[in-house]
Simulated scan of single mutants.
Amino acid sequence: MEKVNIRPIEAKDNAAIRKIIRTVLEEYGLDREGTAYNDPSLNDMTAFYQADGHLYLIAEIENKVLGGGGIGPLPNSDGAICELQKMYFSTDARGKGLGTQMITACLNAAKSMGYTQCYLETDPDMTVAQKMYLKHGFRYLDKAVGCTGHSACEVWMIKDL
């Protein structure tokens, strides 16, 4: 596989990453309310992730966006917990270690920003993603933390940083 470039999102990436996120959610039948599918931030991810405590990274090969992942403060938490957000990859990019590279980059950034825990929500059918999260030290929770607005996500995980 060619060299993967992981870098902060730029305005030129907005349409490509929005399409990847929505396509993956459609693939899993999650193109509905209570998921990231209709998040207003998808309209301009670059602007959304400029706020303090936020970062969104793009994975690309030869200027082709393959996916991305981000962190941001967990709404309605004490400020020490970030959320791993919108980590999705195109079908042709899966199984190549990009998830591991992305999650490592996001967690390192979260630590450097002073977060002490990282939280995420996902769908029960996203079993491959859950295996990766477990491998990176996340553990399951019995209930949601904070208030992400993603009521359709029924799997909650957290990791100490």
Results as ranks from 00 to 15, higher is better:
His150Arg: 02
Ile61Pro: 06
Gly70Arg: 00
Asn76Ile: 07
Gln50His: 11
Ala36Gln: 12
Tyr115Pro: 00
Leu98Cys: 08
Phe89Asn: 00
Gln130His: 12
Asp39His: 07
Arg94Phe: 15
Ile158Ser: 08
Thr116Arg: 10
Ser90Pro: 02
Asp13Val: 00
Val65Pro: 01
Gly99Glu: 03
Ala80Met: 04
Ile158Arg: 02
Asp78Val: 05
Leu107Ile: 14
Gln101Val: 00
Arg18Thr: 00
Ala109Thr: 13
Thr100Val: 08
Tyr88Ala: 01
Cys147Lys: 15
Pro8Arg: 07
Thr127Lys: 13
Leu66Asn: 13
Ala59Glu: 08
Gln101Lys: 14
Met157Thr: 10
Ile58Leu: 11
Phe138Lys: 01
Leu120Ile: 10
Lys12Leu: 07
Pro75Gln: 11
Ala105Gly: 02
Leu98Pro: 07
His150Gly: 03
Gly68Ile: 03
Asn14Tyr: 12
Leu25Ile: 01
Gln50Thr: 10
Asp31Met: 08
Gly72Met: 14
Tyr119Asp: 13
Cys106Lys: 02
Cys82Phe: 05
Asp160Gln: 12
Cys106Ala: 10
Lys131Arg: 14
Asn76Glu: 14
Asn43Ser: 09
Met157Val: 13
Gly68Tyr: 03
Gly99Ile: 00
Glu26His: 06
Leu42Pro: 01
Val4Leu: 07
Gln85Glu: 06
Met45Tyr: 05
Tyr133Arg: 09
Tyr37Asp: 00
Gly70Pro: 00
Val155Ala: 10
Ala16Lys: 14
Leu84Val: 14
Ile9His: 04
Thr122Gly: 03
Cys153Pro: 05
Leu107Lys: 06
Pro124Asp: 03
Gln101Trp: 03
Leu107Gln: 07
Tyr37Asn: 06
Asn63Ala: 08
Asp52Trp: 01
Leu120Met: 15
Met157Glu: 13
Thr127Tyr: 09
Gln117Val: 03
Leu25Phe: 05
Thr100Phe: 15
Gly70His: 02
Met1Leu: 07
Met1Lys: 12
Ile158Val: 11
Cys153Gln: 15
Leu107Ser: 07
Gln117Ile: 05
Ala105Thr: 01
Val145Cys: 08
Tyr37Cys: 09
Met157Asp: 15
Tyr49Val: 00
Ile81Asn: 02
Lys135Gln: 10
Ile103Pro: 09
Gly97Phe: 14
Ile61Met: 15
Glu33Arg: 05
Met113Arg: 09
Val128Glu: 13
Gly68Pro: 04
Leu25Lys: 03
Lys19Trp: 08
His150Pro: 00
Ala11Gly: 12
Gly70Gln: 02
Asp78Ile: 00
Lys143Asn: 09
Tyr140Asn: 10
Gln50Tyr: 04
Met102Ser: 06
Arg18Val: 01
Met132Ala: 06
Lys131Phe: 11
Lys131Asn: 14
Gly114Phe: 06
Gly79Trp: 12
Ala11Ile: 15
Gly68Lys: 07
Tyr119Ala: 12
Glu33Asn: 07
Asp160Pro: 01
Glu2Thr: 09
Ala15Leu: 15
Ala144Lys: 03
Ser151Gln: 12
Gly114Lys: 04
Ala80Phe: 08
Tyr133Asp: 11
Gln130Val: 05
Thr100Glu: 15
Asn76Tyr: 12
Val128Leu: 14
His54Thr: 04
Tyr88Pro: 07
Asp92Ala: 13
